[in-house]
């Protein structure tokens, strides 16, 4: 145990650099996936057949490709087409696109759960599609959307470790590098696991808060 604490004192500062990148990747891809997911979801419920079809197809393609392959594609293949991204940019874009499919399905479920009478009431006071979404549907859908959204945040935090496969020195890769150069596998990976857990716990509490709020209504 004493050895562990000794190792901790030595490795935590290095691992914290990884933590910082983990947070950057998670927050960046969370924002991107939220925006893209909302776009896919709104296309899906737009009532315009071409857009709905396009969105459904996109979501299925994205869902059908492993995140790691998507990351490889963006980081290693896109340069062949003249688009060279840094590893960090590629990680954020790859994870953002990958998770946009799940975000979209969650948003769509929330939007479709809103009573049709609400939309008709909005129409009868002269609201167009966008105003109806913004003022009537989305504010009500958000209560339904938030608990699963929190879960997606937790999954994204953990899946940000996949960025290590394209050389982003986030927490998992940082741990692996230290472990392979010191052979202190137990100490290092225990620390890595504890750090992920520490970051997850606030999110887990946030999900519980959202759920309580949604149930109260």
């Amino acid at each position: 145990m004493q050895k562990f604490f000794h190792d901790a004192v030595e490795f935590v500062p290095i691992l914290l650099q990884g933590v910082w990148l983990t947070i950057v990747v998670t927050v960046g891809s969370l924002l991107l996936s939220t925006v893209l997911g909302l776009v896919w979801a709104l296309m899906r419920v737009s009532g315009i057949r071409v857009l709905a079809w396009l969105s459904a197809a996109l979501i299925n393609v994205i869902r059908g490709i492993p995140i790691i392959v998507l990351l490889f594609y963006i980081y290693f293949v896109m340069p062949d087409f003249g688009i060279a991204l840094t590893a960090l940019q590629a990680a954020i874009i790859g994870l953002g696109i990958a998770y946009s499919a799940y975000q979209a399905e969650n948003f769509r479920a929330g939007i479709e759960a809103i009573d049709k009478g609400q939309i008709e009431a909005a129409q009868t006071i002269g609201m167009g599609w966008w105003l109806t979404m913004r003022r009537v549907v989305l504010p009500q859908a958000i209560r339904i959307i938030l608990p699963p959204y929190g879960n997606i945040m937790i999954m994204m935090l953990k899946d940000s470790s996949q960025a290590s496969t394209i050389t982003v020195a986030e927490l998992a890769l940082q741990g692996k590098l230290i472990a392979s150069s010191t052979f202190k596998n137990t100490s290092v990976f225990t620390l890595v696991a504890l750090m992920y857990l520490t970051m997850s716990i606030p999110l887990i509490l946030l999900v519980r808060h959202f759920e309580n709020k949604a149930n109260r209504k």
Binding site: G117, E120, A121, T124, I125, G126, Q140
Partner: peptide, 29 residues
């Protein structure tokens, strides 16, 4: 849209916006 602002509708199930107060429902349009 122009016709709907001239011909309002009241529904069997009210269809008020539950996330807005009575006054906010009235002034929304």
């Amino acid at each position: 849209v122009a016709i709907r602002t001239q011909v309002s509708m009241v529904f069997q199930r009210f269809n008020l916006f539950p996330h807005r107060t009575a006054l906010e429902n009235v002034i929304e349009g």
